[in-house]
């Protein structure tokens, strides 16, 4: 940062110009890195789960908890603009869930995620799952401090979404293609979708699942178990 003095002819007075040249997201990125390190120190694997509204985040989460709760201590943070419907559903499974109200914000940032972690009463956690606000745009831009990012794309949304929301697919380690049971009723080409995802992010793991029937869930939960186990 440096300060330069500029003489403004019109106003006949000196003004100071302070150069900042800093990304608006820089502070959040720094906070996110700090949180990531702290969680690593505590052995907590934080997963940031994103999708558009109605893609099946909560149902997928419930399946995931059922599959892994015998092996891992899981806690959930539900982010919504309002309501605690999701947190109640998760709590009914016997897993601690806190509801974070974003107060109209379209995403969570590292500061809000930290608050959520601090609100969790249980401190002995292996996997913390953050259910982000349903939105394919903003959550992708704000690092939450998670060790892993996953997103759910549901069949009715269409196989072209990786092309329309490139950043979301770029930041994800995993893409779950949900609602495979309705594939016969939609013009959704699974292979084309895989290609579209690979165009944006060749490293992304893709798991087709059906959260309703449980199909394909195991491959996904085993991946998660491996990540959390080696954390």
């Amino acid at each position: 940062m440096y300060v330069r003095r500029v003489r403004r002819e019109m106003e006949e007075k000196h003004v100071r110009v302070i150069e900042i040249k800093k990304s608006v997201f820089e502070n959040n990125d720094r906070e996110a890195d700090k949180l990531r390190q702290e969680l690593r120190g505590k052995g907590i694997f934080l997963l940031n789960l994103m999708s558009s509204p109605g893609a099946g985040k909560t149902t997928t989460l419930m399946r995931t908890i059922e599959a892994l709760r015998g092996r891992f201590r899981i806690a959930v943070m539900e982010a919504d603009i309002d309501s605690d419907i999701d947190a109640k559903k998760i709590a009914a499974l016997g897993v601690e869930a806190v509801q974070l109200h974003t107060g109209g914000m379209c995403h969570l940032d590292a500061g809000m995620t930290r608050q959520g972690i601090e609100e969790l009463a249980s401190k002995d956690i292996d996997i913390a799952i953050l259910e982000n606000v349903g939105n394919l745009v903003c959550p992708a831009e704000f690092d939450t401090g998670a060790a892993g990012n996953a997103m759910i794309l549901s069949v009715p949304e269409g196989d072209d979404k990786p092309l329309k929301y490139p950043l979301m697919f770029q930041v994800c380690d995993v893409v779950l293609i949900n609602k495979t049971d309705v594939l016969p009723y939609f013009d959704f080409d699974l292979e084309k979708c895989r290609e579209n995802i690979a165009k944006r992010n060749p490293k992304a793991k893709v798991f087709p699942i059906c959260a309703k029937t449980g199909e394909g869930i195991e491959a996904w939960t085993e991946w998660l178990a491996q990540q959390a186990g080696s954390f």
Partner: peptide, 11 residues
Amino acid sequence: EFLIKEIECSD
């Protein structure tokens, strides 16, 4: 990009 470039101070 989304950068804060500079601020101008009038004090």
